[in-house]
């Protein structure tokens, strides 16, 4: 079996299973710890609180100006690499076909040169954020191994993706195998590190919105 066959066969299957088991395990394990009911008299009805919680999931993406002016760099770079990453993942045609082999449907993609440019911006932003993490006093202090592992795991598919396109050193199918393996690594690490924010961001934003809404504060 070639590396590529292993990567997109056995490795992909097992990392998908680990991913699925891991995320469900982690979500349930955290969401089902002991609960205490808040018995205080809420300012607004339960239905309105649900609405406010749901709204916070959206509004938290657009901070008020007083916050925005202090976090502009993190905010813009954060948006930039997340969007860039998703564009590359979702609109590079080989990726679409990869996803189609799982979901069964496809959508129009973007020309390769465009993907290459967006991917380059994304990777550059990621590198800038890594440098910032290692130099900014606050980030230096609060960063953990998880942050660096997760950075690497998220950046590797981009790096190997470029290696496939640029055919660096090795055979195309070997590089493609490594690229797929880097995605498998992403799937495997996903449930165990901070990448899980992709899922937890929703309940967390919802909860903070609903908790403040209970007190009559729209956040």
């Amino acid at each position: 079996m070639s590396l590529l066959d292993f990567a997109r066969g056995t490795a992909l299957q097992w990392s998908l299973y680990i991913f699925v088991v891991g995320i469900i395990w982690r979500i349930l394990g955290a969401a089902l710890v002991m609960r205490r009911k808040d018995m205080s008299q809420a300012r607004i009805s339960g239905a309105e609180r649900v609405k406010e919680g749901a709204m916070t999931i959206l509004t938290r993406s657009v901070p008020p100006e007083t916050f925005e002016k202090r976090i502009r760099f993190s905010h813009i770079t954060g948006y930039l690499w997340h969007i860039g990453y998703f564009v590359v993942v979702l609109f590079f045609i080989p990726h679409i076909l990869f996803i189609k082999s799982f979901l069964g449907f496809e959508w129009p993609g973007l020309p390769n040169p465009m993907i290459l440019v967006i991917g380059a911006i994304t990777l550059a932003t990621l590198v800038a954020l890594l440098v910032r993490r290692m130099t900014h006093p606050v980030l230096k202090l609060i960063s953990t191994a998880d942050d660096y592992i997760s950075w690497l795991v998220a950046a590797l598919p981009l790096i190997t993706g470029y290696m496939v396109v640029a055919r660096v050193g090795l055979h195309y199918e070997t590089l493609l195998g490594l690229h797929v393996l880097s995605f498998c690594l992403l799937l495997i690490w996903f449930p165990f590190g901070k990448l899980m924010h992709v899922f937890f961001i929703f309940p967390s934003r919802y909860n903070v919105g609903a908790i403040f809404a209970r007190r009559g504060v729209r956040v």
Binding site: A30, A31, S74, D147, F200, I201
Partner: peptide, 12 residues
């Protein structure tokens, strides 16, 4: 618990 799981150490 979910809050403690979701921090990405962005420093904001």
């Amino acid at each position: 618990a979910m809050d403690l799981e979701t921090c990405v150490h962005c420093g904001m």
